[in-house]
Structures are given as C-alpha cells and as structure tokens.
Simulated scan of single mutants.
Amino acid sequence: MARAATSNRTPRQAKAAGTNPPTLQSLKSAQTRAKLIEATIRCIVKAGYANTTTPQVAAEAGLSRGAMLHHFENGSTLIKAAIVELHEKRLRAFRRAADTENHDTATLVRTYWKQLQKPAFVAFHELALAARTDPELARILQPLQVEFRERFNAQAVLLFPEWQGDRRSFDVAMTLSQVMLEGMAIHLLTGAMDEQMVEPMLVVLEEKIRAMNPALKKA
C-alpha cells in the first residue's frame, strides 16, 4: 500500500527532474489521507484499538465517513496505512539519531528512549497486543513487522560502519537496545516500573553496549 506522504518537490523541480509535477488534486488527496492516518493513531491512543471505529476516526479528522471511505475502502486498509506510518516514524527517528559523525552511545540510547515516550509508541503497543487475539489484525501486522525489521536492520548496517568488524555483536547490541528500551517503556506505561529506575537502567544499557565494542568512545 502506498505511504501517505506528499511530495517535497515544487512543480518546477519536478519538471527539471523529468517527472510530472503533482496536481493540486493529488496533493489534496495525499494531505487528506495523512490527516486520516494521524486521526487513526490518535483514536487508538485515546480509546484503544478495540474501541476505535471508522466513524470515530472520521470525526477526529474533521471529515465525513463518506469522505473517509473515498480514501480508504474499509477499516482494515486504514489500519494498515496507520501501521505503515508508525513504522516510518520509527525509521525516521532512527535515521535522525544516527545521522551524526560521532555515534555517541548515550545520545543514541536516550534519543530512542525519548521516541518511545511519544503517542506513536503507545499506538503501536496497542496494536501489537490486540493482534494476539485478533486474527484479521495479525494478518495485517505480521508481514509489516517483518518488512520493518528488514528495513531497520539494513539501515542500521549502513549507519554504523564502526560495527562492521563484528556483525554478530552489532545485531545483539541492536536487539538488546530495542527489547530493553521498549520493555522499559511498556513497564513505565503500565506502572510496573518506578520512574526513578529509568536513569540507572539507561546507564546500564549504555555501558553494556560500549563493552560489546571497545572501539566506541565513551561520552
């Protein structure tokens, strides 16, 4: 399914690149799709997946249900687009955190931690839990999860050349970071973790990652 995004090229740039510039109608359509996707994410955060309905999403987006169905034929296509956008948000955040010459471990860990405090993570967590008992949602989510993992890993390899001498340790470090930080976020969200434990846990993770690659500079 195509991602809900608008082109950054101006009509003049598009013409120079040899492509047809987007029409006003196509830009408006892309903006409406993006508005519906963001409304879906907000509804999931506010009410949970089980209580999110297409009329509720349309109202949240300030559109009629008919206008919504013009862009998404049913709730399943809308949820799929929302999951794709949630994945894109995570990939963009990861690229921003890693797009520096000095890959300081503390900065990378804490940047990802901050990302997990945003509503997008709450929405994704809601969807992941709901998929456990909802076969239709699982059919949508699981292949997108595989695609996301492959894209994330491929991007990580390119962004962190300092780990290329030990790919296995790099894979372990990435998995450890993701599992530990997301687990902490869930425990904090549900009250199972004391907020005062966040800082010492982040320090432990940073130290562990540095120990796995002695070439990393300590902040």
Rank of each mutant, 00 (worst) to 15 (best):
Y49E: 08
H187E: 13
Y112P: 03
L116P: 06
H87N: 15
E199L: 09
A185L: 13
F152M: 09
A156P: 13
E150G: 05
L137D: 00
A61D: 03
P143L: 03
V45R: 13
P214A: 02
Y49I: 07
R33I: 02
V57H: 01
L158R: 14
K218V: 10
A173R: 04
Q178W: 10
L137G: 03
F148W: 09
Q115R: 04
H70S: 09
H70V: 10
A154Y: 07
L63W: 02
A17N: 09
P214L: 03
Q164V: 05
R110F: 05
E136I: 08
Q142H: 11
H70Y: 13
R90A: 15
L144G: 00
V109H: 10
T54H: 02
A154Q: 15
N74F: 01
A82R: 03
E60C: 04
A81W: 01
L158G: 07
L127D: 00
A14W: 10
K46M: 08
P214E: 01
L24C: 06
A185C: 12
W163Y: 13
A120S: 15
L36K: 00
G66P: 00
S76F: 07
M212Q: 05
D104T: 12
P135V: 00
S26I: 07
Q117E: 15
R168A: 14
V172H: 04
W113Q: 09
T32M: 12
F160K: 08
D99K: 06
W113E: 05
A61G: 06
T53Q: 05
K114N: 14
G66N: 01
A47W: 11
T107R: 15
F121A: 03
Q164S: 14
A97D: 12
G48K: 03
F72W: 06
L116D: 03
L129N: 14
T54V: 13
A81T: 04
V45Y: 06
R92I: 06
R210S: 08
D166T: 11
P135K: 03
V57I: 11
V198W: 11
H125A: 10
L141C: 01
K80R: 12
W113M: 06
W163P: 00
A82L: 06
K15D: 09
L36Y: 00
C43R: 12
L69R: 07
L158T: 11
N153L: 14
E207A: 15
M1E: 09
L63C: 01
T19M: 11
L86A: 05
G165A: 11
I140M: 04
E162A: 07
A39T: 01
P55T: 00
K217Y: 08
P22R: 04
D104G: 12
Q115K: 02
L216G: 06
